Simulated assay, not measured.
Amino acid sequence: MRKFLSIILLLTLILTIVAGCAQDKAPNAATEDTSDKKSSKDLVVRIGVQGSGGLFGKAREDQLFEKAFEQYGAKVEWVEFQSGPPMTEAIAADKLDFAGLGNMPVITAQAANIPFTIISQALAGNKNVGIVVDAGSKIQSLEDLKGKKVAVGKGTNAYDFLLRALAKENIKVEDIELINLNPDEGQAAFDSKGVDAWAVWEPYLTINTLSQKGRIIADGELLGLLSPSYNIVRTKFAEEHEDLVVTYLKTLNSLLEWELANEKEAVERYATERNLPVALMEATRQRALPINIPVTEAIIQEHQKTADFQYEIGTIRQKIDVQKVFDNQYIEKALQ
């Protein structure tokens, strides 16, 4: 009997030790389940911007993102672009992590299976894109563009706006002569009257209208067409560094708060950067006020309509479900 009891006690002791070992290992097992999260130490975060000044110019000067990421041991590299399409190409090549860009480059990128995620809305999209003509031009409407040279950057939100605007007025793309130009080239062509019209975004619309060089014949508000802009992140980066994505959006929010609280200083700063009158920069902000908010279902539905239109006319080669690239979790955490 004593021998039997000894065996029972021995087995109990062994089971206790095994259970204790299992408990010791449990936290490690949980850690392994989230092993796709990587350390940010010595990571270089590539942030894409269009141009060197503006809101991000302030951020670069004050090293706001550098200071925000420093707590994670991460560094920042700034990469400049003239428009959105090269940004998505850089994301596809794993050479860019964050970008702010218009709706059309986003649609084209998804159709090309580029792995990115939309993390917030950056512009409302009702007046930030339009078509401008020379102040002395006889062109008064979209109908008058038939047979005329129209400058636009292919693949940009202005390109999407132009195509949708023409379709709404039952005008064929073949009825106009499209000239593919980036903003710098477009401005030069517009100044020299090398083109009859220019589809472009802010601040170029306001620069050319308030300087009395041109006038707007169509924009989103006039035609009821939205061209929202978004903040996006390389999907794998977001999966591995969720904390940095939230920090990026929080830092952007702090920038926008500074801009609103110091609007006079901000506008004067932006005007100086572009060597433009302050009044002109104030007007630009009225047409394209930057935001950083969750993307609503209504905007997503509008984005889907735009994607469907681009598929129908053959601009993109596959039909896409845009819902798959929107994720508000990061901006919602940043706003808490």
Rank of each mutant, 00 (worst) to 15 (best):
M1H: 14
R2V: 15
R2F: 15
F4T: 06
I8L: 15
I8T: 09
L9E: 07
L11V: 15
L15W: 00
L15Y: 14
V18A: 08
C21H: 11
A22K: 10
Q23F: 13
P27F: 07
A29L: 06
S35H: 06
D36K: 03
D36I: 09
S40C: 11
K41M: 08
L43K: 08
V44F: 13
I47E: 11
G51K: 08
L55I: 05
L55C: 01
L55W: 07
F56C: 03
G57A: 12
L64I: 08
K67C: 02
A68G: 07
A68M: 03
F69W: 07
Y72N: 10
G73F: 12
A74E: 02
W78R: 13
V79P: 03
E80N: 12
E80T: 13
Q82W: 05
Q82N: 06
A93N: 13
K95M: 15
G100H: 03
M104H: 14
A109L: 10
I114T: 09
I114D: 05
I119Y: 08
S120R: 12
S120P: 12
S120G: 11
G125F: 05
N128W: 02
G130N: 05
I131W: 00
V133R: 04
K138G: 09
L142T: 10
V150R: 03
A151W: 01
D160K: 15
F161M: 08
F161L: 07
E169M: 04
N170E: 05
I171T: 04
K172A: 15
V173K: 14
E174L: 07
I176T: 02
E177Y: 05
E177V: 02
L178D: 04
L178T: 08
I179Y: 00
N182Y: 12
A189S: 02
A197L: 04
W201C: 01
E202N: 15
L205F: 10
I207R: 04
Q212Y: 10
K213A: 13
A218K: 03
G220A: 06
E221C: 04
E221F: 08
L223I: 09
G224H: 00
L225M: 05
N231L: 12
R234M: 07
F237H: 08
H241I: 00
V246T: 13
T247F: 02
Y248I: 03
L252S: 09
S254M: 04
E257V: 12
E265V: 08
V267E: 00
V267H: 01
T272G: 10
A279C: 05
M281S: 04
T284L: 07
R285Q: 12
Q286F: 02
A288W: 11
L289Y: 15
P290C: 01
P290W: 02
V295F: 07
A298I: 07
A298C: 03
E302S: 09
Q304G: 00
A307W: 03
D308S: 10
I316T: 00
I316G: 00
V322W: 11
K324T: 11
V325H: 07
Y330C: 11
Y330H: 13
A334V: 00
